[in-house]
Every structure is written in C-alpha cells, then in structure tokens.
C-alpha cells in the first residue's frame, strides 16, 4: 500500500525532471559519480543517503548553484542548460535550502517576493519603485492558498520561530515553482509540531501538479510524505523503491550499504 495512494502518479508516465549520469568533482574529491534521479508530475520523491553521499551536490546541480562536469538535467524531455540559480528558476524549479534560506532582516512579505518584486515604472529596472501593498497582497493571497497561519506580512522574519520562517521559505518556493520543487531537509531545524505543519504543506504540493524532491534524514517523515525513495551512496544512485509503511529498515540498510 502506498502511503498516499490517491495522489501517486502512474509509474508509466514519462518523468517531468530527470538527471542522467551526473558527475561533479571538486579537485580530487568526487561529489557525484554518475548519479541518476527522476521525478514525475504529482510525485514526491525522497532523496536519501548518508552525509557525503552527494545529495546536496545533486540538488544544487538541479537548482543551478553547481554546474555539472558531465551529465544532463532534462525537464519534460528538454535538456536544460543550468548555469545559475536564475536559469533554474526560469524553468520553474524552486529550491528551499536546508539552513532556512530567508533574510532575517527583511519582513515576511519582502522575503516572499524578493527577486521578483514588481516595480514601477518598469523601464527603471531594479531602480524602479517597490509597492509594499503589492508584496503584502501577494503574500496574503498565497498564505491563504497554503493555509499558512499567524504570520504577519509586515513582521521582520528574524523575530519569528523556525517553523514560521520555514513556512515562509516553502510558501515562496511553492508560489513561484511551476514544475519542480526541491526541499532540502525542510524539517531539520524544527520542533515536532512545526515539522508536522511543514509536512502537511508538503503533502499538498502534488495537488498543484508539481514534482517534489525532498531530502531528509528523518525516515518517519519520508515514509509519511514520499511516494518513492531514491538512495545515493558515494556519489551514485544505488537504488530506488516505492515507499510503503514499514519500509524504513530496508531503506536504512540501503543507505548504509548493507543491501
């Protein structure tokens, strides 16, 4: 039985995003040695592996922060040329980074719209004027859709709890992702209740037709939200399986290399 049967996509469907033969070295250190990964529309794929297995490098490659030495990233069958985070965002790929990627000194609404503010007049480019009202309205609209509660748009995010901050980071990514959303350890810094709220948010993402990649060390969280798990070791993809309740031990064995 799949944990989330109503939403599990058809395994025959062509992948939305696929990474093939990804290779990346930093001098003598090989971070990726031919890693593979694919995600379908409406599917939550958990990317698992021990520290140093290459998960971070792989998702950084998909989000355009790391440029691969070799290998392809394809979106709907088209090869992407990802040279910067902007390239990935232009293709609708959004990432929520592990260490709560928010600006503590900006407000919720500012954090939400940063990098995509609407300015007027347009011909002034980045020297154009911002509209706080626009940012606020846009935040409230998306917060409503995602039912993020009790986060005031004008509040400085540095004054908020870890869960509220993460909720804003996820909301920002969700609002602008049109194809794939990547969550790097979204619950690592959070308490139990806060994790719960973020996981509930993640579970609803496939409804929006997104492909979701989630990196997590927490097997319980993985089993509760993911449809499929992919395991990496030593920069390679060593296996994948459909996630069913009670599969944790098998996954751990695969991560450790005992299987």
């Amino acid at each position: 039985m799949i944990s989330n049967p109503r939403l599990a996509p058809n395994p025959e469907e062509a992948p939305l995003l696929s990474v093939r033969n990804a290779r990346k070295s930093y001098g003598l250190v090989t971070a990726l040695a031919g890693a593979e990964l694919s995600v379908r529309r409406g599917e939550i794929v958990a990317l698992l592996g021990d520290n140093g297995a290459g998960k971070s490098t792989l998702i950084k490659a998909i989000s355009g922060i790391v440029v691969l030495d070799e290998g392809d990233v394809e979106l709907s069958g088209h090869k992407l040329n990802l040279r910067s985070p902007g390239d990935a965002r232009a293709h609708g790929i959004e990432t929520v980074f592990q260490d709560l990627a928010v600006f503590d000194n900006l407000t919720v609404a500012e954090n939400f719209s940063i990098g995509r503010e609407r300015v007027s007049p347009r011909w002034l480019g980045p020297l154009g004027f911002l509209s706080t009202r626009n940012d606020t309205a846009s935040w409230i609209e998306h917060a409503q859709q995602l039912t993020v509660k009790n986060v005031s748009p004008q509040q400085e995010i540095g004054l908020m709890s870890g869960g509220q901050r993460q909720a804003v980071a996820v909301a920002r990514a969700v609002a602008f992702a049109s194809s794939v959303i990547i969550l790097d350890e979204p619950t690592a810094a959070l308490g139990v209740r806060e994790s719960e709220e973020i996981l509930n948010l993640v579970k609803r993402l496939p409804d929006r037709g997104l492909g979701v990649i989630i990196v997590s060390h927490n097997m319980d969280h993985v089993v509760r939200v993911a449809h499929r798990a992919v395991v990496m070791r030593g920069g390679r993809t060593v296996g994948g399986m459909v996630v069913t309740p009670g599969i944790e031990r098998e996954l751990v064995a695969m991560i450790m290399g005992a299987r």
Binding site: S63, I65, S84, P85, G86, R89, T95, F97, A101, V102, F103, D104, N105, L106, E110, I114, G115, E117, V119, L124, G125, P126, L127, G128, F129, L130
Partner: peptide
C-alpha cells in the same frame, strides 16, 4: 527603502549566500 535595488542591498547585507542562491 523604495527601490528594488535598495531592498536587494539590504538582502545581500542580511545574508549574502541566500542572496546568491536566490539569483540576486
């Protein structure tokens, strides 16, 4: 305080790494 460039300057000061990740 009123332009996009200004907000980005605050953002870079607040967290230069995140600013780069977000493509500023």
């Amino acid at each position: 305080r009123k332009t996009q460039w200004g907000r980005w300057l605050y953002a870079v000061g607040g967290n230069p790494d995140v600013a780069q990740w977000l493509g500023l």
